[in-house]
C-alpha cells in the first residue's frame, strides 16, 4: 500500500524529516508516536501534499506510484485521506456541499457517475449514524461553530463517506473528552478493513486503548527510532519520551 523510503523534508531550509522509512501493508493500522517537534505533523502534511514543505531526498510509493508527484486533490482522488488535527472552519460552504463535492471528485476519478440526490442523502445519513452526528450538521457551514469533538467527528464522517485506501489521522484524539474519543474511535474501528490502511499520529497512548494498532513506531528528531507492537505504546506510557532523545542518531529499529 505505502512505502516511505529515506524521506527527508525541510521547512524554510530547516530539516524536519531526516530519513523516514516505513512500510504499511493493506489492512494494517500503524501508530506513529513521538514528542512535540519530532516531525509527526510534518509527515502527515507531506503525505497529504500541503504546500511549504521541501522534499530533499527519498520517495513515497503508494499503490505503485510516486505519491509526491501528485497534487493534494490527485492524492485524495486516489484514496489518500488526511483527518486534520485542526479542521478549519469554512463559513459560507455547507457541510453537505463539501461532502457531495468530495465524494463526486473521488467517484469521477473512479469513472463512476455522480450519485443522485436521494442516493447521496441515504448514504450520508448511514455514515452519520456511525459518528452519531445529527442531520442539522449537514446544513451548517463546514466546522463553523462546531465544538472540538464535533469537528473531529466531522472528519471521520468525511472519511467514512470517501472510504479511502489510506487514512492518516493526525492527532485525532487531541481536544477530545472521553465520550467524544469513544465515538470517534468506534467510527474509525468500524472503518478498519482488509483493504484499508490507517496511520494514526498521536502524542498520547490513550487513543491506542480504543483503536488498537498492529504496529507502533516512535518518531524522534525526524526519524523512526523504534518500532514494535502495541506493547511499545504501553512502555512509552510508563517511561515517557525522555529516553528517545538519548538514542544515538541514525538508529532505527
Amino acid at each position: 500500500m505505502l512505502e516511505i523510503k529515506n524521506l527527508h523534508a525541510s521547512v524554510d531550509g530547516k530539516e524536519i524529516l531526516r530519513g523516514i522509512n516505513l512500510t504499511v501493508n493493506a489492512g494494517e493500522v500503524h501508530a506513529i508516536m513521538g514528542p512535540n517537534g519530532a516531525g509527526k505533523s510534518t509527515l502527515s502534511n507531506v503525505l497529504a501534499g500541503r504546500d511549504g514543505y521541501e522534499i530533499t531526498q527519498g520517495e513515497v510509493i503508494y499503490k505503485g506510484e510516486n505519491l509526491l508527484d501528485f497534487e493534494p486533490e490527485e492524492r485524495a482522488q486516489r484514496g489518500v485521506f488526511l483527518a486534520f488535527q485542526y479542521p478549519v472552519e469554512i463559513p459560507g460552504v455547507s457541510n453537505i456541499y463539501l461532502l457531495k463535492a468530495a465524494l463526486n471528485a473521488v467517484r469521477k476519478y473512479q469513472g463512476l457517475d455522480e450519485l443522485d440526490a436521494i442516493d447521496f442523502l441515504t448514504l450520508v445519513r448511514s455514515k452519520m449514524e456511525l459518528v452519531k452526528m445529527d442531520e442539522q450538521f449537514l446544513h451548517r457551514s463546514v466546522n463553523e461553530g462546531f465544538s472540538g469533538g464535533e469537528k473531529k467527528r466531522n472528519e471521520i464522517l468525511q472519511m467514512a463517506l470517501l472510504e479511502p485506501s489510506l487514512a492518516i489521522l493526525d492527532e485525532t484524539d487531541s481536544g477530545l473528552d472521553i465520550d467524544a474519543l469513544k465515538i470517534v474511535s468506534e467510527g474509525v474501528n468500524a472503518l478498519r478493513s482488509q483493504e484499508r490502511s490507517i496511520i494514526m499520529i498521536t502524542h498520547y497512548q490513550r487513543l491506542l486503548d480504543y483503536i488498537v494498532p498492529d504496529f507502533v513506531h516512535v518518531l524522534s528528531k525526524g526519524q523512526i527510532v523504534k518500532s514494535g507492537d502495541k506493547e511499545l505504546a504501553k512502555e512509552l506510557e510508563k517511561t515517557g519520551y525522555s529516553w528517545v532523545d538519548e538514542q544515538p542518531e541514525g538508529v532505527s529499529a
Binding site: E73, F81, F84, L162
Partner: peptide
C-alpha cells in the same frame, strides 16, 4: 485562506474549483 484551500483540495476538489 490557504488552510481552507488546502482542506478542500485534500478532499479531492481541484484548485480552480476550490
Amino acid at each position: 485562506d490557504q488552510d481552507q484551500l488546502f482542506l478542500l483540495r485534500a478532499r479531492g476538489l481541484d484548485e480552480v474549483s476550490a
